[in-house]
Design a binder for these strands. Structure first.
Lengths: 242, 242
DNA sequence: AAGTGGTCTAGACCACTAT
DNA sequence: TAGTGGTCTAGACCACTTC
């Protein structure tokens, strides 16, 4: 595992991104694609793929016939919903020092919701891990992940403090590919409020998600709760059709 | 305007999508890219671009070395946050018959929030349009859009019942390119609750968004409120880096 | 008219999966 | 080993912006 050397496209992307953050482009204008291709000794296709990724993540914007430009506003956006794969990373990006508490870690028989989400039947077992993410000892995120017990290679679960996607790769040989997430506003119940350190009935955001692996198999059912006063999500909604 | 004929890629995409929904592929297996290119008389690049878009919107998934397959679960997802450009469309997709009420339609001097979002200064004017979207006479979505008055070509605002992106194209000559959206859980206040036909304090979702045009200029500041019991959003969160 | 990004082609080679 | 998707190249032409 972990043998992948970055593709040419990703190297080019990183290179241009670095120049952007170092403010090395006059007037926020990025050189023509042909010039970049020449300078870096790669084809224009590779340049375009790299620029396409940068555009997608809001770092640049392009105007046909005019040029490619740095997107100053886009660079400022933090906590982009599309990019979240580890809440510790999110809290770090916010400038916090994150820590993690494992509240629950046990194998249980599956309930109806999780069974439906993961394609399991009554009596099947799942590993349930409940975690609390804190910044400077203040609770921000509460998560509950459920993984089919059949995916666990052995009984070694001493590393369940890893982000879920790393745990799945290291100990289940599954690569998390994407989540289907449902976005739900809630008033925290007694239990949630106590764990998050707020008053019962406080309004917050929650996600109910199913994670799929490289074979498009559901491998994790997750529910997360967020303190809206400490962490707020953003996203870029881009026009596709029409 | 409206001169654009669909690109080859988009035609191919539509063609394959149609075959998918008509269940014309054996075992949900999509033919190899080389075969598709040959059959349709286009290059493999065009096929790959089309398949890439279909993968991105969750209609298919690909496994290197193995093939391309229909994503049955992905096809079922409705109300995808990334794809929303008209709430009437969202309600239609839900199988409802939508209608729209215009609650407010006036030119006001800008407030601080909107001014900051749109880069306006005190005293500048904005067109404020508040709308209520209903399904079978039941309120579901409440929106408030603010557009700089300087963008309005003339005083004809008789068509502000159009979706905001169409209004901007038709009457302001601006093409809405993307939104930066903040996702906020709320307890509805008296005014919001009355308009949405729920009890004060009911929990719901809200978006605060800024829309940017083809020149990356902010052109609309929008706030939206949703009845969580009638409309719930989903999204596909895809892994990009690592 | 010149310059820039957008689309499309034809072909090569690599990485991975299946058998 | 054969077949499939992933990456990369070199080049052509088109659509649009700018001057």
């Amino acid at each position: 595992m972990i043998t992948r050397n970055p593709s040419l496209t990703d190297q080019v992307k990183a290179h241009i991104k670095e120049q952007i953050v170092n403010d090395e482009f006059e007037d926020g204008r990025i050189p023509p694609e042909a010039a970049l291709a020449e300078d870096l000794g790669v084809s224009r296709t590779t340049i375009r793929d790299a620029l396409g990724k940068l555009e997608h993540e809001g770092a640049i914007f392009r105007k046909q016939g005019a040029g490619t430009f740095v997107n100053e506003a886009g660079l400022q956006i933090r906590s982009r919903l599309e990019e979240i794969w580890s809440y510790e990373q999110v809290l770090e990006d916010h400038g916090y020092t994150p820590s993690v508490q494992i509240l629950t870690d046990e194998i249980l028989t599956v309930n109806d919701d999780t069974g439906a989400a993961l394609g399991l039947v009554e009596g099947d077992e799942v590993l349930v891990v409940e975690k609390l993410f804190l910044e400077n000892d203040k609770p921000v995120v509460l998560t509950r992940n459920r993984i089919p017990a059949t995916l666990l290679a052995d009984d070694d679960r001493s590393h369940d403090d890893l982000p879920i996607y790393e745990f799945l790769e290291e100990y289940c040989d599954r690569r998390l590919s994407y989540y289907v997430s449902e976005i739900i506003p809630v008033a925290f119940n007694t239990d949630q409020a106590r764990k998050l350190g707020v008053k019962r009935g406080t309004v917050g955001l929650s996600f109910v998600e199913v994670g799929f692996d490289q074979d498009n198999e559901p491998v994790v059912h997750a529910t997360s709760y967020f303190r809206d006063d400490l962490l707020r999500f953003r996203m870029i909604r881009r026009r596709t059709g029409t």
